[in-house]
Nucleic acid binder design. Structure first.
Length: 426
DNA sequence: TTAGAGTTTGCAAATCGACT
DNA sequence: AGTCGATTTGCAAACTCTAA
């Protein structure tokens, strides 16, 4: 499964270089559903498609709208399914702007794969899709819009507005989420005591306060505090419904914490020290064992940011590949981290670019060292929260740990990106 | 303790199917 | 053909269990 594919540094690289990429997965092959045969009809509002589809009604269809949007769907009876789009259903309002209809009969076999393929193909072709599932980042109405308005989302993503967590003190005093339906909160036995978290217990042990563990506890709170304050919109109002925080979950050999936004995790802190996938990097002076944080960004968003300073022409990252970066001048006060990793991770719901770097350096890294990253990270949070509530992670949420993070935010009282908080990391 | 397999869970999205 | 509620499916973190 694992196969290293080292890449030599380009000769033209400047003050900092990308040392290597490593490939863990490289699965590419011919897609059996690539050869699609669609029949297409132009239709007028209110027109039925029954006359076009006489016999075989099972297959994949594509709706075309007057504004150029597309919608891909599957059905065992496309005529009936079409009606639910025209007349509306619990899934969406009636669509009266369908101008064309394409259909590919598939009498038997897997409709899901064919649908996913068509969605992916149209996305890559640049079409705006009205699908929700399999289409992370869609612009369709979402329940989240009622909690954070579309306008506020836009302001948040572009970095314009006021980021004060005005109700943080109230949240800290309450010791539990202020917004969510409390009746459905599953109570963790440790949640009654706001200072008693599994994370706190772990770092209370003397052996976890020295060596490579020294300062890690505080660093995790720095990163989590930054994420709640500057990345998640209206964190106090959206807690539990649209973001959750897991306290010492056992996921993948254990994590200190996982921060989930909407349907996907946005950041997690492994309990294992970071180890580069490429063994050659172990020899580099900057790769002493340390604990790292991994943060999910939108797909294809990270390399363009680093391309400004690095020679990344024609560099593409495939699924499972990692690209290791080193900065040769870590004494520069603007440098939050002398090394970091950019990877790509495929979740079923979407592929994400993953930024990995030592704990405690996230805020400065995305606001000072590479300020272009912050709007991307905010957009990632909004996109995942618009995709759906955090229901599946709800029961793992630790109000106690969240309270502690909110406390650290309130105590820091940052002004403009907490400049005073940076000093201890430089 | 670690690794891996399998299970649990709530929810959203989509399909199905009975009925008119 | 159209309507609407029931049912199915897929998801992914975090869980438990088992074996070494």
């Amino acid at each position: 499964m694992s196969s290293a594919r080292p890449v030599e540094p380009a000769a033209s690289m400047i003050t900092s270089v990308c040392v290597a990429t490593t490939s863990r997965i490289s699965l590419r092959g011919n897609n059996p559903v690539a050869n699609q045969v669609y029949r297409r009809w132009q239709i007028s509002p209110g027109q039925s498609i029954a006359p076009f589809i006489r016999s075989e009604r099972r297959g994949i269809y594509v709706l075309e709208f007057s504004n150029g949007d597309r919608c891909v769907g599957q059905s065992v009876d496309v005529v009936t399914r079409f009606a639910t789009h025209v007349h509306g259903s619990s899934h969406h309002e009636p669509w009266g702007d369908i101008v064309a209809f394409a259909f590919r009969p598939i009498p038997s076999g897997d409709l899901n794969e064919a649908e996913r393929f068509e969605i992916s193909r149209l996305r890559k072709a640049g079409y705006t899709l009205r699908n929700k599932a399999g289409n992370l980042g869609h612009g369709q109405p979402a329940p989240f819009d009622a909690v954070v308005s579309i306008e506020a989302q836009h302001h948040w993503a572009t970095g314009a507005p006021n980021y004060e967590l005005h109700s943080v003190e109230r949240r800290v005093a309450a010791g539990q989420p202020l917004c969510a339906d409390q009746a459905t909160v599953s109570i963790n036995p440790q949640d009654g005591n706001p200072v008693n978290t599994k994370l706190g217990d772990y770092f209370a042990k003397p052996s976890h306060r020295q060596g490579i563990w020294q300062g890690v506890y505080e660093a995790i709170f720095d990163d989590l505090g930054f994420l709640l304050h500057h990345v998640i919109p209206n964190a106090v109002d959206t807690e539990l419904d649209y973001w959750t925080l897991s306290d010492m979950p056992s996921t993948a050999r254990g994590r200190f914490a996982t921060l989930n936004t909407g349907v996907l995790e946005i950041a997690f802190f492994p309990r294992q020290p970071f180890v580069p996938a490429d063994p050659r990097l172990l020899e580099a002076d900057a790769t002493a064992p340390s604990f790292w944080v991994h943060v999910n960004f939108p797909e294809h968003s990270l390399l363009p940011v680093f391309a400004e300073k690095y020679d990344l022409d024609n560099v593409l990252l495939h699924d499972g590949e990692e690209m290791y970066f080193r900065c040769y001048y870590p004494t520069d006060p603007r440098v939050a981290s002398p090394h970091w990793v950019v990877g790509r991770h495929s979740y079923r719901v979407a592929t994400r670019d993953m930024l990995s770097l030592p704990v405690g350096s996230l805020e400065k890294f995305v606001t000072v060292q590479f300020p272009g990253l912050l709007p991307l990270l905010r957009q990632a949070a909004i996109t995942m929260m618009r995709q759906g509530p955090s229901g599946i992670f709800r029961r793992f949420h630790s109000p106690a740990l969240a309270t502690q993070v909110f406390s650290s935010v309130a105590a820091a009282k940052p002004t403009a990106f907490g400049a005073s908080r940076f000093s201890k990391h430089c």
